[in-house]
Amino acid sequence: MGRYWRTLRRFWSTALAVQLEYQANVLIELLAVAMSLSGSLFLLSLFYGPDQTLGGWSWAQALMVQGLYTVFDGMASTWLRPNLGAIVTHVREGTLDFVLLKPIDSQFWLSLRTLSPAGLPEIGLGLALLAWGSLQAGVVLTLPTLLMVLVMLLAGGLILYSLWFLIAATSIWFVKTWNATEVLRALLASGRYPLNAYPPALRLLFTVVLPVAFLTTVPAQVLLGAAGAPMLLAGLGLAVVFFAAARSFWLFALRFYTSASS
């Protein structure tokens, strides 16, 4: 276990060193995030007509959902995109062989090899938006809710990671899956708005098949005291199921790779 920790520290310190080589990227990223967030807020404001509600959610409550979405989007830019996007490159250039020959778990290596600090400001902005929205919505933060929200955020992160990893792992068969992750990203964008803003069929889709609801809507409901224990358990259960699926799919993909690749 100690070896894994030490490896992780080395991974991330080299990642920081790479980023320092390209300082201008951080500025551009910051500008892009600021523009994108103000655009999203402007768009959200358009949905608030005379009744001042979107699927039963007030403006402040919807801001919480936007904030959570921004946090996860930032997590994707910091962690998922740089790592899981590199799997395709590894397969195409044949350097996956080097990873497989290291005496360390290959999924660990591929999932945590690097970090892109350029995405961190987005996480910060998302958290700030979440805090502001919660304040406006009159959320009373107690220790149990805080713990529950943290658990739900972890579960959401795990679900997002597993989904992304599942798609990235298919690059063992189809070398170009870059576009498949774009489809995932497009569908994830639905998490910007509370689940209730969607028609019933889509609600089902976003809860069960592509559980975007557990990333943004459910944690917001937890903060608002509107999510019951069954919802929490369902979220946790889904996270475990998705992670197990990602793990076993990777082992299956590796078996294929070692028996069929040339």
Binding site: L46, F47, Y48, G49, P50, D51, T53, L54, G55, F174, K176, W178, N179, A180, E182, V183, R185, A186, L187, A189, S190, Y193, A197, Y198, P199, L202
Partner: peptide, 28 residues
Amino acid sequence: AEIALWALSGVLPFIMLSIWSGSDARSG
């Protein structure tokens, strides 16, 4: 295959449509 996925990744307008349809700002 990539281009098909690309076409599929353009579904954002449909997601927005489903939100606009149920929103009370639609009348405007």
